[in-house]
Design a binder for these strands. Sequence first.
DNA 1: AGCTAACGTTCGCTAAAAAAGAACAATCAT
DNA 2: ATGATTGTTCTTTTTTAGCGAACGTTAGCT
Lengths: 295, 295
Amino acid sequence: MKLNYHHLYHFWQVARSGHLTRTAETLHISQSALSHQIRQLEERLGQPLFVREGRQLRLSEAGRLAFDYADAIFRQGEELTALFAEGGHAHREVIRVGAVATLSRNFQEEFLRPLLDREDLELGLQSGGLDELLRRLSAHRLDVVLANQSVRGDDQHPWRSQRLARQPVSIIGATRLGPLAPFPEGVAGRGLIVPGPESSVRHAFDRLCEVHRLSPTIIAEVDDMALMRLLARDTAHLAVMPPVVVRDELRAGTLTDFGALPGVFEEFYAITIRRRFESPLLKQLLEQSSELLLQ
Amino acid sequence: MKLNYHHLYHFWQVARSGHLTRTAETLHISQSALSHQIRQLEERLGQPLFVREGRQLRLSEAGRLAFDYADAIFRQGEELTALFAEGGHAHREVIRVGAVATLSRNFQEEFLRPLLDREDLELGLQSGGLDELLRRLSAHRLDVVLANQSVRGDDQHPWRSQRLARQPVSIIGATRLGPLAPFPEGVAGRGLIVPGPESSVRHAFDRLCEVHRLSPTIIAEVDDMALMRLLARDTAHLAVMPPVVVRDELRAGTLTDFGALPGVFEEFYAITIRRRFESPLLKQLLEQSSELLLQ
DNA sequence: AGCTAACGTTCGCTAAAAAAGAACAATCAT
DNA sequence: ATGATTGTTCTTTTTTAGCGAACGTTAGCT
């Protein structure tokens, strides 16, 4: 014997308002029908959901429990209808990618490349903070989030982080600074531009400095890779960053890679929600990206 | 025009199996009825949920989205029915309290005291790690969690932390150690037992040490208050802990309070889920506890 | 206290929907 | 080709939801 979700829905509405008559009006059904349905639900569940106090309905202990579930259930239902109502995904396939704003643009482009020449799909790209993007992912407003850190999921947030790439990190500076000794010595006495204290690259870099008993002069802490690229190009300071970010400048010769930092990597993750039915397009994209980028 | 949850339910079942006929059999309805209902749902939502490929049904892009929501919805529905089926809360009121295992037993007892002499309610008390307890709270298997740290809630985890008490923290040691100078000086050259590095008490204590340019000798890091009590009693080391934990020993004179640490507190929180309809019992308990403990 | 308006419940009856069943079309395996 | 299998589309039957009037309470008013 299955739960009748229409009964539950009506119970939900009555519990919200606390009045049977008023709820019947808003639902455009009679009081009697509503009363009967709630009675049926109570019989189905085996215990009263309301305590009848005079001419008032108060939630019972069991009613409060049932209400919490009903609330969760129908809020999601309304979210679903709203989603389909507000435009509909029409025919063309849609893939919506969220990227942490500080992420390398080159990496983003590389990830999206397989999608760019496809006429039959619509691509949405949103930038923002990780928290905001994960919220959108949970609300099904994004299909995948690109980030430079992994996120652990749990029962209620079924996130899955998949590492796509691992870029070495180098000391990089303007070519006009002239030749430079390799890492431990080269940076002594020079200003450094490094990633912010929350990033994994910074952690690894700090550890490396400790090992070499080195306390470098930090000129600036920069989260945004694009900004760091500009600073590396236009100042006389050295930057700690993945060479791939300034690939163009390295080729052109305006910037020089003064050597990779051992054990320091920037990692890229694709974060998705565990779904029972994955979009074949997304699945293919993630597999493809792993192959391309992990080489 | 509202969403028909029975249609959605049938869609959910069909999508899970991928076969219409088989699903119709398990649902004990005819294929035709099932087919018709899914058609109606598609019309209601304004786009096809299945792609008809030959004699097979495959989820469309929109179908995958709808399925994710339906899955969340009906999983909760099944949880609800299971909850009512497995025994029912019957008549007596039930309150289920989760307490972080490392929390002071005295505090737990103080919190539960108003409930202990009530014959008309059933009390459940579970100990465990914070993560585990919060999971149970989300699943409605607990009504309140007692912890020594607050938890921030978000849209999906509607947790609410309420501070119940704030206990001063002292340097405490065996009386036989003899008199001791107050904090900054007294601890010099002595071993200390302190709370683990994750706790707020430890953080506050470390800050205090920095201010006084003090680097004390850490003998042990202990999370469990009951264990710390034993160590304080049975070793020659000083412990950083709230006096209330060893109230009995202080009265008996076996332990001595060598002075409160300024600005260091252990805080106790009651964590509940934001519910539209709170249990009056729980509400009363929390108000009562605040008054009693915050004095 | 006695009246009245508001509220929830119960009981037949009717309208709407869900489900069954038969006929049909498409696909796959042999 | 052909029969078995699967999904769709009809029409008919069965079940469920809903209506409205009568009824029983309760709270508020005079």
